[in-house]
Amino acid sequence: MNTADGSGKNNMSLRERVGAGQNLAEAGLKHESRAEQYEVVGPKDAVFAVAGEDVILLCSVKPNISVVDMTVEWFRSDLKDSQLVHLFEDRVDKNTNQIQSYRGRTKLNHQELQRGNASLKLSSVRVSDEGLYKCFIQSESWSDDATVNVTVEGKRFSSWRTSVILISVAAVLSVIPGILRGVFARKNREQYDVVGPTDPVFAVAGEDVILPCSVKPSTSVVDMKVEWFRSDLKDSQVHLYEDHVDKYTDQSQSYRGRTKLNHQELQSGDASLKLSSVRVSDEGLYKCFIQYKSWFDDATVNVKVEAVGRPPVITVDGFDHSGGLHLQCESEGWYPKPDLEWLNSEGVSLSSETTETHRNTDGFRVKHTITVHHRDDKIHCRVKLRHHVLETQIITTSKC
């Protein structure tokens, strides 16, 4: 058993010991597993994958417990040095030492980690992916692992096998129509992707916004699970649709009564979320997660919130020794920080002498000053944030 100071049977690392022919029990890790009553489990039978398609390598902790704060490591135990396939540690994916052939093809569902599900999605399967995989999970005082045996079938064989099935489909349908349709339905769904916008979605505080999310090619998601959550915050469920109904039990308090899925649009694969009465605190990263049995995928939506502040106010703040007129312009309630500029009657920008920016619960407050020596002119103070512009003017006159 490994101790907190790193002492144990020897100084070899976990992968070195596995690579040297020891299993994890011999490496001194199973004892802690039994002590905490938890167990990492994988599939009993081999997982069959088809080259060019995606596959899910099942792995979870039983009884269910969140593994978000644990280390989850997937590696090939049948290769030299037990090479890294995917690493999740300190709440983020760390794939610096990942095998080159797996780059960009592995994915853990971070939301599912909260339920103890550490299954790995492997995309665009290759024949070289066939082999033994270890799903290793470790907390500060506990660790365990499970082995997943992956067998890969080449495309040519897969096509031949599919042809044979299609030839026999009429006979099979008369015996087990429900099962066969289920197989084909699952097969088809595994060719779909969940997609969201490539650019950030801009929302205005106090207004409504639509967070786009859909399945491509279009297919009904009425029978699937659709979950929206904040990937940049802990325990932040935004909306859950499951078993044909919306479920709000675990929804974050700040989103209560402000989210809506269009159930009619779900039939065409559109799982976009309507968020009402947008708040500045709504800014962040959102995940649109869709799942049907063993298939799942997600898309990220980056929401940027803008709050339009109050119209700028120009005040006269006296004169300098040469008769110059001191002007001050101030505006508040903006988010994020806006740009403030002075302009003369011809629209030429004037340089501010002093600038101040403060942030409070209402947003940003900006204040700029300028001294005007030329009279009988219109001076404009303009505050802008992207396409939002508010402007005020003052007319200066010569002394009588």
Rank of each mutant, 00 (worst) to 15 (best):
Gly333Leu: 07
Gly333Cys: 04
Gly333Val: 04
Gly333Met: 06
Gly333Asn: 09
Trp334Cys: 05
Tyr335Ala: 10
Tyr335Trp: 14
Pro336Trp: 09
Lys337Arg: 13
Lys337Gly: 00
Lys337Tyr: 00
Pro338Glu: 05
Pro338Arg: 07
Asp339Arg: 09
Leu340Pro: 00
Leu340Cys: 09
Leu340His: 03
Glu341His: 09
Glu341Asp: 12
Glu341Pro: 01
Glu341Arg: 11
Glu341Met: 10
Glu341Leu: 11
Trp342Tyr: 13
Trp342Met: 09
Leu343Ile: 11
Leu343Gly: 04
Asn344Glu: 02
Asn344Gln: 04
Ser345Asn: 11
Ser345Ile: 06
Ser345His: 09
Glu346Arg: 12
Glu346Met: 07
Gly347Trp: 13
Gly347Met: 14
Val348Lys: 14
Val348Tyr: 07
Val348Leu: 14
Ser349Ile: 13
Ser349Val: 15
Leu350Cys: 13
Ser352Cys: 15
Ser352Phe: 15
Glu353Tyr: 02
Glu353Ala: 03
Thr354Glu: 10
Thr355Ile: 07
Thr357Gln: 06
Thr357Ala: 15
His358Asp: 07
His358Pro: 00
His358Cys: 02
Arg359His: 05
Arg359Asn: 03
Arg359Leu: 01
Asn360Phe: 07
Asn360Gly: 11
Thr361Ser: 13
Thr361Ala: 14
Asp362Val: 05
Asp362Gln: 10
Gly363Lys: 01
Gly363Val: 04
Gly363Asp: 03
Gly363Tyr: 02
Phe364Arg: 06
Phe364Tyr: 14
Phe364Ala: 03
Arg365Phe: 01
Arg365Tyr: 02
Arg365Gln: 08
Val366Tyr: 00
Lys367Ser: 08
Lys367Ala: 06
His368Val: 12
His368Thr: 06
Thr369His: 08
Thr369Gly: 04
Thr369Ala: 05
Thr371Asn: 10
Val372Pro: 00
Val372Ile: 15
Val372Tyr: 05
Val372His: 06
Val372Lys: 09
Val372Asn: 10
Val372Asp: 09
Arg375Phe: 14
Arg375Leu: 15
Arg375Thr: 15
Arg375Trp: 12
Arg375Gly: 12
Arg375Glu: 11
